[in-house]
């Protein structure tokens, strides 16, 4: 049986939903099995595509460069970390000047604080400067994908079921988030 080429899809998730996510898991115990983050509307994310405004960046490394960047979409901010294991992305961030529209392809990462909070961030595979049209398209597309997930949330797909059970998702909150994100576009 020929194996299907199985690159992970780059999911579209807004910052607010990403920040609300705290369920990460693997499908099997195999150490090479990919790590996923399940979001409240049921996106099972191993890779994501983000377009937003780079508003702040800071080299917080001690020995080697380690960049922390803040990337803002209409619903909130993504935190991006790039160090020696993301050399190309780190170099790209180092050369950028905020504010700028940037596109990021990356992996979700979670960190549990001592008081039990889960913080999400993104480890970029690539970071590039883009234009306003790309940013606008991403917002509309991400709204559409999120809407599709909300519409499927009552279905019986394993991801939807898991999301419902874990988050008890308040759909109206995310619908309002989408309305706000899209309204910003119609006002431009």
């Amino acid at each position: 049986m020929a194996s299907q080429y199985s690159r992970e899809v780059a999911h579209r998730v807004f910052a607010q939903e990403f920040r609300d996510s705290d369920l990460s898991f693997k499908d099997s115990n195999d150490q090479y099995s990919p790590q996923y983050l399940l979001t409240p509307t049921g996106a099972k994310v191993n890779r994501m595509f983000i377009v937003g405004t780079l508003t702040e960046k800071e080299d917080i490394g001690t020995d080697a460069e380690y960049w922390r960047a803040r990337v803002v979409d209409p619903t909130g901010a993504f935190i991006i970390y790039a160090g020696q294991y993301q050399p190309e992305a780190a170099r790209a961030i180092a050369e950028m000047e905020a504010p700028a529209y940037i596109a990021i392809v990356g992996k979700p990462s979670t960190y549990q604080t001592e008081d039990g909070n889960v913080l999400t961030s993104v480890r970029p595979e690539s970071v590039h400067i883009v234009d306003e049209a790309t940013r606008q398209r991403w917002v509309a597309e991400t709204a559409q994908r999120t809407m599709e997930r909300i519409n499927n949330l009552n279905g019986n797909s394993p991801d939807a079921t898991k999301a419902r059970e874990h988050y008890n998702t308040e759909v109206s909150v995310y619908k309002q988030m989408l309305v706000d994100a899209l309204k910003e576009q119609t006002q431009e």
């Binding site: 049209a133 398209r137 559409q144 899209l182 119609t186």
Partner: peptide, 11 residues
């Protein structure tokens, strides 16, 4: 950019 019509339809 995404057509205004599509954005309105989503809204």
């Amino acid at each position: 950019p995404m057509e205004a019509g599509k954005v309105d339809a989503l809204l």
